[in-house]
């Protein structure tokens, strides 16, 4: 790997410096954190790289608003963080263990995964199920919005001139489970799913469900979330949901898996995720 044409490498000491360095390059500069995506998609138009890992964005902290994950915290740092472990019954640890392999998790950052937003990635599927919000800054100031909403905008253009500061995970009432199928344990997903459930008096009071790598990026299934509320968790219910997901989910083909395969497996993954989430929520 060699990005030809790159003349300078900068370590931004803070976000303001990163933004002013970027604007000085007039479109020929790029931000990086772990650098794994930039290294894998060699560009020839860049003259300067601006490393954000020293800009004070690697924090993991909790307050009344939720769990704040700095954009340059690595996946390994989140995996080994006690605060992240406690969030929503340990769903961050459960999911991040399935993402790539130790050496890549030592490099890749949460912010990188959010900004790159690969359609097969596990992290967007997880974060939209967790109602994640993002905070970013550009020349106009700071902006906070839900990740699901951000992904409906032209976010790639936004991040050409903005620094992602953090991902905020709000306190949630439910218990979560994540399911993924790849070709092997280190593979990217052929399909992934995340479910969250909260129970009250033996009935589902709150539900979150997302499915990703369809091959499109992970999105929630609001129709299923609504339909689940008020139901009693049971094996029969999960079987019924499996059939409905199979009938209704929007999936497609790519070179890794067919539409028919994804349709079949989406039902299975959602059923498994729901059953495990219900188990954790305490049926």
């Amino acid at each position: 790997m060699r990005l030809r044409g790159v003349r300078r490498y900068h370590w931004a000491r803070d976000v303001d410096e990163a933004l002013s360095l970027l604007s000085a390059y007039q479109g020929k500069g790029a931000f990086l954190a772990g650098g794994v995506d930039l290294a894998r998609s060699p560009r020839t138009d860049l003259e300067g790289l601006i490393d954000l890992t020293g800009a004070g964005l690697s924090y993991i902290r909790e307050d009344g608003k939720g769990l704040h994950l700095g954009a340059t915290a690595t996946l390994a740092e989140i995996l080994s963080s006690a605060q992240a472990q406690e969030y929503a019954g340990g769903i961050l640890r459960e999911t991040l263990r399935l993402v790539a392999y130790p050496a890549l998790r030592n490099m890749a950052t949460l912010g990188g995964a959010v900004v790159s937003a690969h359609p097969w990635a596990d992290i967007p599927t997880l974060l939209v199920a967790l109602d994640a919000e993002v905070l970013y800054r550009n020349a106009e100031g700071e902006k906070r919005m839900s990740l699901a909403e951000l992904y409906r905008t032209d976010f790639r253009r936004i991040f050409r001139e903005s620094v992602l500061l953090e991902v905020l995970l709000p306190p949630l009432p439910g218990a979560f489970a994540f399911e993924k199928i790849g070709r092997n344990a280190g593979d990217i997903a052929l399909l992934n799913a995340c479910a969250g459930l909260a129970l009250e008096d033996g009935r589902i009071a709150w539900a979150r469900l997302s499915v990703g790598a369809r091959p499109e990026r992970g999105e929630r299934l609001p129709w299923l979330e609504e339909a689940l509320v008020g139901e009693r968790p049971s094996e029969a219910l999960w079987r019924k949901v499996e059939e409905e997901v199979r009938a209704r989910i929007e999936v497609g083909s790519d070179r890794r898996a067919s539409e028919a395969w994804r349709r079949e497996v989406a039902g299975v993954l959602v059923r498994r995720a729901l059953a495990r989430a219900a188990g954790k929520a305490g049926t």
Partner: peptide, 23 residues
């Protein structure tokens, strides 16, 4: 970054040297 044969330890932790910018 798929095969792992370029792995080195950076501050004692494994990373892929093929995907790590030298600076």
């Amino acid at each position: 970054g798929e095969c792992g044969t370029c792995t080195v330890l950076l501050e004692g932790k494994p990373v892929r040297s093929c995907l790590t910018f030298a600076p």
